[in-house]
Write a protein that binds this DNA or RNA. Sequence first.
DNA 1: TCATAAACTGAATGCTTATTCAGTTTATGA
DNA 2: TCATAAACTGAATAAGCATTCAGTTTATGA
Lengths: 204, 204
Amino acid sequence: MVYNKTEKIIEKQQNRKTRILKAAREILEKGTNKDTSIKAIAKKAGIATGTFYLYFADKETLIDTVVKEIYVELLEIIKEERSKYSDIFDKLEASMEICIKTFMKEKHLAKILLEHFPEVNNALNCKFTDIENDLIRFTKDDLYELREQNLIPDQDIQVSATAFVGTFRQVILSWINSGEPVDYDRAYKTLIQYNLRGLGKQIK
Amino acid sequence: MVYNKTEKIIEKQQNRKTRILKAAREILEKGTNKDTSIKAIAKKAGIATGTFYLYFADKETLIDTVVKEIYVELLEIIKEERSKYSDIFDKLEASMEICIKTFMKEKHLAKILLEHFPEVNNALNCKFTDIENDLIRFTKDDLYELREQNLIPDQDIQVSATAFVGTFRQVILSWINSGEPVDYDRAYKTLIQYNLRGLGKQIK
DNA sequence: TCATAAACTGAATGCTTATTCAGTTTATGA
DNA sequence: TCATAAACTGAATAAGCATTCAGTTTATGA
């Protein structure tokens, strides 16, 4: 005979899954000590190690889920911010601003996306290519439009979009690892201007 | 009684050390299968695993040595190329050109520096900071000079230099991982122009 | 040539960590 | 309430891999 789950149990289990994901984030974000074992994650989530496997097929699936969750959150934030503007350069600038703000406010997002995720991705494991490319694609869409309107000079859009994303990765990682800049405002403006100029925005 | 090494033995041992380093490079550069074990490296070098430890204190030392070697090689190449020019923008452009050329010609250099090395560095393990910063420092020196001569607008030099290096990391990695661009020349020019414009070079 | 120092070998050790599973607890519904 | 399904537990398993070391081979120089 098959027993049906009660509402209470369903809720409890969803709760548990959420708590595992939360624990995983907390453990992944402090890249220092490196004890990202299932045992440690399970302990932080308040369950036995075996229980973990009732909620996730394996460790890889957990990491995938965490990374995807965070990416979706970031993209949502960017998307919402972009929607407030119609001018493409404004959209781009808004994307950059909110991206920096989000990463610096919630460093764990940056830590996990920029540190842990590239490790997985770099090993030619292209599982996350779709997600990663979202950021580049966002940029590319804008660039194509700017080019059509002759607002930026002729260029390889794919390369520019990739370079654009690259500046953020490197700069934000350096801020996280080696300490934030003294003059935050100036640093922040430099990064944004660097990219706008890099794309070829003409200053009116 | 202590025996002295003969010339022949000294040479043989230097040879062996070289062969271990070469084997390590060959194994590190193909990030796919991931079997970067000492056993695998020793086998490729034609020695027993135990022998490895007569030449290197541990695995970490080996990786450090390989990475430093490659960095020094790259910096040497850049330094030499730069010396051919006196104009700072020309120096910068030459650095970029030779950097792209070197990485694309010898992909294993790029693989090891851009893939393996960041893994080590990202984990807040700042052992390589000195080396890594060499690239950024190179750029910074140029930028300070350009700023003094009022050839570029006011900006946070540290951020610009970091962004500069970031574009290379991201673009070259994408070429290595997802295939080179169709129109290589165009891609190549885009990346260089992106950075020159990003820094604020005025087109005369 | 020979005693022995130095170098070399690779199987064994030890440690870490993902995953499993036999036993236990909790939930279901007749 | 009770038989049993489902969930949970954590010690045990297993696999990977850096490092060691007792035994073997090679080199040295008297």
